[in-house]
């Protein structure tokens, strides 16, 4: 049944995808499509916006209103779309470098405003499409084509970043835990406000091969699994034990005034402002 749901929401003439064998992005895409289907959203009122990179290719495959924009700017374009047509369901799909390096400013400001957009970061720890340069989420000490003997930098905890900036829904899940990933994306889509899902993908080609995980997808998936710890498990562990681990779960699920509603109340009905 699921296969039909997925195929119905894909542009099948664009398949196969350009993603490498073993890439985790297809599984995240499937989870997203199933969640959109559960929401009952029509193709005509579902908008998927992306930036540049491997995740940036998602809008080409989804049969809905989609927009492939420039590097890091998915949320900027998505904000414009949501403002022009608040009734549309807007999803921004980004890669880790896309969302947190070149587009980091848009990410924190979209979260701060609490605009009703769902942002999904396909985090594979690397700039995959350009050939495996380190990104702001490449783990400390790991190799890339621009950190040949190990990354000296400390990566972002994207969930903490977005939580700090004010998002009303923040969650992380690994791609191999796909049933839970789907549930989390569904919750994010349901949220009225800025919702953020960091979906942990794998990149055997650009990350795995350079980090002794080879280009074998299962080894990469197993590595991500071995690094992941649920929020409940994490509470029982010390900070040292959690060093470098991928903590999964829902971190924020709160209510705060949504930006467009506030905007309409304050900027367009100034007389009604509470002084």
């Amino acid at each position: 049944m699921y296969n039909n749901i997925i195929l119905d929401r894909l542009r099948v003439d664009k398949l196969p995808t350009m993603w490498c064998p073993g890439c985790g992005h297809g599984i995240i895409l499937a989870a997203l499509l199933k969640s959109i289907d559960k929401m009952g959203w029509e193709k005509e009122n579902t908008v998927v916006v992306s930036g540049i990179g491997c995740a940036g290719r998602v809008p080409g495959y989804i049969d809905a209103c989609t927009l492939h924009t420039t590097h890091g700017r998915a949320l900027g374009f998505a904000t414009g779309i949501k403002f022009a047509h608040p009734e549309l369901n807007v999803i921004a799909v980004m890669g880790d470098g896309d969302a947190s390096a070149i587009g980091g400013n848009h990410l924190i400001h979209a979260a701060r405003r609490n605009i009703d957009i769902t942002a999904i970061v396909f985090n594979n720890d690397i700039y995959g499409m350009t050939g495996g340069q380190k990104s702001p989420t490449t783990p400390h000490g790991y190799n890339s084509t621009t950190s040949q003997y190990g990354n000296a930098e400390i990566p972002f905890d994207l969930c903490k970043l977005v939580e700090g900036a004010g998002a009303t829904f923040v969650a992380r899940e690994i791609q191999s835990n796909h049933i839970n990933l789907e549930k989390i994306i569904l919750k994010a889509l349901q949220k009225k406000g800025f919702s953020f899902v960091e979906a942990f993908s794998v990149c055997p080609t650009s990350f795995g091969r350079r980090n002794k995980l080879t280009s074998d997808a299962t080894k990469n998936i197993d590595w991500v699994k071995s690094m992941s710890v649920t929020k409940a498990q994490a509470e029982k562990r010390t900070p040292e034990e959690l060093e470098g681990k991928i903590i999964t779960g829902v971190f924020v699920d709160i209510e705060r005034p949504e930006f467009i509603e506030s905007y309409l109340k304050y900027d367009l009905s100034g007389a009604n402002c509470e002084k």
Partner: peptide
């Protein structure tokens, strides 16, 4: 100071190797 972009990236990848070595 660099940021990756196709088709420039092989320049900085190679240069990064020189730096690392």
């Amino acid at each position: 100071a660099v940021y990756p972009i196709t088709p420039q990236t092989p320049i900085v990848m190679k240069f990064s190797e020189y730096v690392a070595n």
